[in-house]
């Protein structure tokens, strides 16, 4: 061991941290880790997204049902109008034959 290496060893002697170091580490260890908090927030975010997605899907489904209902109603009205016109035509022919 040279003087130089001995000097290095002395310069690099271990030093103690502040007195309350261990207590502060213990306190931090008792708290949930940041990654744990982050995971909780992520889970809440995912849950909220799922709820929003389900709600959006349900609203979309209802809108499609309403549009289908309106289309069916329009077709029914059109069918009734055609039937009514046909019946009117037949009625007029029958009345003409009777005279």
């Amino acid at each position: 061991m040279t003087d130089f290496e001995d000097q290095l060893r002395r310069a690099l002697e271990r030093v103690e941290p502040s007195e309350d170091f261990a207590a502060r580490v213990a306190t931090r260890a008792r708290r949930p880790a940041p990654w744990f908090q982050w995971r909780a927030w992520a889970a809440a975010g995912i849950a909220a997204s799922l709820v929003m997605g389900a709600l959006s899907f349900e609203l979309d489904r209802r809108e499609r049902e309403r549009q289908q209902g309106q289309a069916a109603r329009a077709q029914l009205i059109q069918a009734i109008q055609i039937t009514s016109a046909q019946l009117d035509k037949i009625n007029r022919k029958v009345q003409g034959a009777l005279r």
């Binding site: 690099l12 030093v15 103690e16 941290p17 170091f21």
Partner: peptide
């Protein structure tokens, strides 16, 4: 082991608050 971990950090960073923070992270 606090002196060992803290000293590695302190001699490397040469900044007491940063070394304490790093040593705490190591123990966590």
């Amino acid at each position: 082991h606090q002196a060992m971990v803290y000293s590695v950090a302190y001699h490397f960073l040469q900044d007491r608050p940063a070394a304490e923070e790093l040593a705490q992270e190591v123990f966590l």
